[in-house]
Amino acid sequence: MKSRLGFVPVVATLGFIFLYVPIISLIVFSFNESKLVTVWSRFSTKWYAELLNDEQILDAAWISFKIGAISATAALVFGTIAALALQRFGRFRGKTLLTGMISAPLVMPEVITGLSLLLLFVAMESLFGWPAGRGLTTIIIAHTTFCMAFVAVVVQSRLADMDSDQEEAAMDLGAKPARVFWDITLPTIAPALVSGWLLAFTLSLDDLVIASFVSGPGATTLPMLIFSKVRLGVSPEINALATIMILIVVVGVVLAAWIMASSKAKSSTTY
């Protein structure tokens, strides 16, 4: 028997409408011919054509894509090691410190992270001469740092769900730790690794604040470009860009859900 609280479904429905109205409005008005984003004139795909001819946006998108792919990969490696250490290695020196450092970036206001990393890079440059100037490298370092926290959370929750029985059995049968990791742990946490990488990639692709602080001339990421355009007002071209990005995400999420369901993988609690 379930308790009946009549207003719950009503508020929940309104909540979901609230979550989706902005996204739907973005998509609908990307097909609007008029430059006035919110006044409908007639169906058109001209903003998509303009988008695909806009060198500036395409360049920024490519830069963001590169930064995202490299940072997500580095964050995946570091975040997974951290998650394994915290979940499987028992007690070790500095465990509390690592726990704190891996969870703090999740909530740290971006302005603080951005400013502090920039000041570090400037101080390092004057002390060691590296990194020389700011640009792609500094953004990648910054993104790797905050993305590994998210990867660690995702992988850690998967490891917590997973039985350590199989790992222990393999060890008892004489398998070396490395062998246990490659043959048992890795295949089991593979779905979490995929979603962790994708999450890191999306977060990197989306970051405006941290990138603005640590970027330099010649490294304008997509969010930085969008922000400077949006400050001047709404533009249908941005709606078209948003629609493409949303479409990629929806396809990706549906595909991931389908793969998870068909492999009957036990769903882990991830973002």
Binding site: P22, L26, T38, T202, L208, V234, I238, M245, G252, V253
Partner: peptide
Amino acid sequence: FWTSFLLRVYAWIGI
């Protein structure tokens, strides 16, 4: 959560 935060905030300007 997976779609761009910046673009979702931008959507509210139009609304």
